[in-house]
C-alpha cells in the first residue's frame, strides 16, 4: 500500500501548543461551560448556588479581562497522537513542545508552577518541562491535546491495585474513596477521570486521558457507560457540594477508560480534576 506521507514542521506544534495553553486558561471548552451552567440550575443548597454563581462570574471575568480562570494555570500535560505517515522536520519534538509551553506561560501571563526537581524544588521560571505522552497512530495527521493540570485536585488522585474478585464493587469503592478523601481540597464540583485495567502506569495514563474526553460523552462499552452514569449519581449523593460546603453538585462527570489486564490484577486509577478541567484539542 502506498503511504500518503506528509511532512510536518514541529514549529506548527510549538505554535499550536502556545495558543492552546493560553486559550484554555482563559476560556473553558464548550462542554465544560455547559456542564457548569447545567450544574448551576441543578444545585439546591443556598451556599452551593452562591458558589456556582461566583464560578459563572469568574468565567465571565476571565474571558472578558484575560485573567486566568484559576491562578494555578497548571503543569502542561500534552498528548500527541502522531500519524505513522507523518515525517516530522524542524526542532526535536520534545523541544518543540516545551518551546510552546514556554511561550504560552511567559508571553501569556500564566503562572510558572513547575520546579526542576521534586526535592530540590528550584522553579524553572517558564513552566517547562511539559509532561508529554506520544502515540503513533494510523494516518498522516498530528492530533494534539493539551491539558494544563492544577495540583489542588491532582494531589487527591489515587491508584488502587484491586483483586479480580473485588470486581465492579472494588472499582466503585476506589472511585468513592478517592472522591470522599478529596472533599473540599479538590475544588468541587469535580470531574473524575478513571482508568480501569492495564498495568499500574497504564491505568493512571487512562485516567488522565479520560479527563480530556468531552464531558457529557459516554463510553461505547455498555457496562462502562452505565458505570459512568451510576457513579456520577452516587458521587452527587455524597453531599460534598460546590466548594465542599454541601450541596447536590459534587461532580460534573465521571469519564472511564478501560484496557485489557493481567489474570491476577484489577488496577483502578482515579484522577481527580477540579471544575477548571482544561482540555483543548487541535489537529495538524
Amino acid at each position: 500500500m502506498k503511504a500518503d506521507l506528509r511532512v510536518v514542521n514541529t514549529s506548527l506544534i510549538t505554535e499550536a501548543i502556545r495558543d492552546m495553553c493560553i486559550e484554555i486558561n482563559h476560556d473553558l471548552s464548550p462542554d465544560m461551560k455547559k456542564a457548569l451552567l447545567d450544574a448551576t440550575a441543578r444545585e439546591t443548597s443556598p451556599i452551593g448556588c452562591r458558589i456556582l454563581g461566583q464560578l459563572q462570574d469568574n468565567l465571565r471575568i476571565a474571558h472578558d479581562e484575560m485573567i486566568p480562570i484559576c491562578q494555578d494555570t497548571g503543569m502542561a500535560v500534552v498528548f500527541l497522537d502522531i500519524g505513522q505517515d507523518v515525517h516530522l522536520i524542524g526542532k526535536d519534538l520534545t523541544e518543540a513542545v516545551n518551546d510552546g509551553v514556554r511561550a504560552a506561560y511567559t508571553e501569556g501571563f500564566l503562572r510558572k508552577s513547575v520546579v526542576s526537581d521534586p526535592i530540590e524544588r528550584q522553579n524553572t521560571t517558564d513552566n517547562t518541562p511539559a509532561v508529554i505522552h506520544t502515540s503513533i497512530v494510523p494516518g498522516n495527521r498530528v492530533s494534539i491535546r493539551v491539558a494544563p493540570k492544577g495540583f489542588g485536585s491532582e494531589n487527591m488522585s489515587r491508584v488502587f491495585m484491586r483483586k479480580p474478585a473485588e470486581g465492579l464493587d472494588g472499582v466503585r469503592n476506589s472511585i468513592l474513596t478517592a472522591v470522599r478523601d478529596a472533599g473540599p481540597n479538590a475544588c468541587p464540583p469535580m470531574v473524575i477521570g478513571v482508568g480501569i485495567g492495564g498495568t499500574f502506569e497504564k491505568a493512571a495514563l487512562m485516567a488522565k486521558e479520560a479527563l480530556t474526553r468531552e464531558v457529557g460523552c459516554h463510553s461505547e462499552k455498555k457496562w462502562v457507560a452505565d458505570l459512568e452514569v451510576e457513579m456520577l449519581d452516587t458521587i452527587n449523593e455524597l453531599g460534598i457540594g460546590p466548594g465542599g460546603l454541601g450541596g447536590a453538585v459534587t461532580a460534573l462527570a465521571v469519564n472511564i477508560e478501560t484496557y485489557a489486564t493481567h489474570i491476577a490484577g484489577l488496577p483502578v486509577a482515579v484522577n481527580i480534576c477540579c471544575h477548571v478541567n482544561r482540555h483543548a484539542r487541535r489537529e495538524i
Binding site: 464560578l55 471575568i61 466548594g243 477548571v276
Partner: peptide
C-alpha cells in the same frame, strides 16, 4: 476562612 477555589479571576477584582 475559605475563599472559593478556582475563582481566581473573580477574587483578583
Amino acid at each position: 476562612f475559605a475563599a472559593v477555589g478556582g475563582a481566581g479571576a473573580l477574587l483578583s477584582k
